[in-house]
């Protein structure tokens, strides 16, 4: 979100393993605890299945596996970040939500030019915060390929 005059954006930061990521706060609809998902046949491995979000059938994506890391073994402490892109809702399974950040847009550095799929496709930029590094996730890239992979 941009704050007039200062070009600030607000982000929600979350952790996967020992890495920190963030998404734009405006895309986040809610954050809820993990509940067992119903697996979908013939889906990519990172699609953990669907859960009931107050009557809405919500697909849940394992962010760790999506970013090319290990498959998450979810427990009660894991959280699902419910994201809205376009008219669709998708849940992102992450380890925990760590922070809400307000960052000047100028502080976002371009993603480094590495060959790993994560760097190339999903990271929009990296943000240095108090010695930490937070990767800004490009949400559209995350979902754009579900359909083609599923089919």
């Amino acid at each position: 979100m941009r704050v007039s005059g200062n070009d600030m954006c607000e982000l929600i930061a979350f952790t996967i393993g020992d890495q920190e990521f963030c998404v734009e706060v405006m895309a986040v609809r809610e954050i809820r605890g993990w509940t067992p998902a119903t697996p979908l046949p013939h889906s990519p491995g990172y699609v953990r299945g669907v859960i009931n979000l107050r009557g809405v059938v919500l697909p849940v994506m394992d962010m760790s596996q999506r970013l090319g890391m290990d498959r998450t073994d979810p427990s009660q402490r894991h959280v699902i970040i419910v994201i809205q892109t376009g008219s669709q809702l998708v849940g992102l399974l992450v380890d925990s939500v760590s922070d809400i950040l307000a960052v000047a847009e100028s502080a976002i550095q371009p993603a480094p030019d590495v060959s790993r799929e994560m760097g190339r496709d999903f990271v929009q930029g990296i943000i240095p915060i108090e010695g930490r590094m937070v990767c800004l996730i490009q949400l559209n890239a995350l979902f754009g390929s579900i359909e083609s992979e599923a089919a």
């Binding site: 979908l40 046949p41 699609v47 809405v56 059938v57 809702l89 998708v90 579900i146």
Partner: peptide
């Protein structure tokens, strides 16, 4: 409930 609303067509379902 539609699966397509938030996801996509799932074969066999």
């Amino acid at each position: 409930k539609s699966l397509e609303a938030n996801y996509t067509n799932v074969p066999g379902i």
